[in-house]
Design a protein around this nucleic acid. Sequence first.
DNA 1: TCGCAAAAATGACAAATGTCATTTGTTGAC
DNA 2: GTCAACAAATGACATTTGTCATTTTTGCGA
Lengths: 236, 236
Amino acid sequence: MNSALDNATCQSCNQRFNSVFCKAHEDHINQINEQKSCNTFKKGQVLFSEGARPQGVFCVSDGKVKLSHLGDDGKDQIIRLVKAGDILGYRALLSGERYSASAEALEDTQVCFIPRDLFIKVLKLDSNLAFEMMKLLSDELHKAEIKLTHLAQKPIRERLAETLLFIKETYGYEADGVTLNVRLSREDIANLVGTATESAIRLLSEFKKDGMIELEGKKIKIMQPRELLLTANLQD
Amino acid sequence: MNSALDNATCQSCNQRFNSVFCKAHEDHINQINEQKSCNTFKKGQVLFSEGARPQGVFCVSDGKVKLSHLGDDGKDQIIRLVKAGDILGYRALLSGERYSASAEALEDTQVCFIPRDLFIKVLKLDSNLAFEMMKLLSDELHKAEIKLTHLAQKPIRERLAETLLFIKETYGYEADGVTLNVRLSREDIANLVGTATESAIRLLSEFKKDGMIELEGKKIKIMQPRELLLTANLQD
DNA sequence: TCGCAAAAATGACAAATGTCATTTGTTGAC
DNA sequence: GTCAACAAATGACATTTGTCATTTTTGCGA
């Protein structure tokens, strides 16, 4: 963990209307605000590792994090991309298990850490928060089920196109309106898609050749979102 | 929906200690008991279909159900196998969405139906139940994430072995101690594994040749669970 | 700025898997 | 019991995808 900053209160956090806490009672927010600790993680730093015991929940106020699960043969599968306003580490905590995934900062990231007991206590007292939490879990479960189906049924070309669109939905564009607002290695992209790194690289080249995207190092520019959507072949 | 039976109360249900309701307050169980309706679905009947609006939650008192999600190309992916004591239909209800999967009885099945508003109300009042619900959702999410990783990284042979063990964990054996206690078509098995029906059939034949299983029509007998576990190549 | 190490890209090939066609077996309605 | 319809099994083959080796490019610290 990093040097503790105390740069902001929950009440003034610019994510306060985005997060799962948006409907929590004011008193509870105040309690969280008093007991939370703020930290910064540099790009590449690990917030928590698979196998560790969750001591609380992270609330991301700024930055980007990848959550990845180590497969049996040592290959990572990226389970979730986390952005400002999201919380992190709740799954294992609520299941009462150790972390089943590792969290690594994709860029410098600010998080608040809410201790386990406080989080549980507030969740017990605040049925609105509990409901938001259930909704969050249900939504994640839904996404996982769809991803599962696509992983089982769709060719890699379609899944890569879908992944690029998913990254766009999650992190949006840079100021130029075309460059994806995150830097991912080819390996990360492959681990999102669920394929070999070489396959991801090859298909990215094809997409570039087809004019759907442009590549400049780790920058990816979406030139033809409509074509990409067609390539993804999404019915729903 | 089927002819309404009123064969049992929640208080006398033999699943009352298994289900997510086990820690709910007695008063709430009583309310549920008064407002629930019991139904029977014959094998092959559909409890609900993808796209419909959830009107409540199903609680399975006896029988088996498959939950499957239709892929973009019309192929089913089986998302979950449901057994007595499980609840059904909560995901869409909590997300406030239409059903994203269809539920079909794998054999004659008894369910109780708990109306939407009652379920929500009790969930709001009963923080123990809400916690159990969050735990259930977290556990399902965990399973989905592991399945996702395996789908992305493991060959079909390993996934089929894992699937057979999963069926054993879910439904157990018949009285003989070797026959899986459920009848699934080869297509269902393929849709669980996430592969083509022919591939599933071929690999089942191989497993049989290797002596790990025996096949008699839709009966599957697990002859060498240890070998099957090795074939599944599970690290965790 | 150079040089090194890591990442990206590419090619050749092997292996895994899916598709299509055909045969065989099973089941249930009549 | 027979037939029709469906499920299961099998074979041949095409396609997709992964693996390994190699080259090229990039980014970064000395």
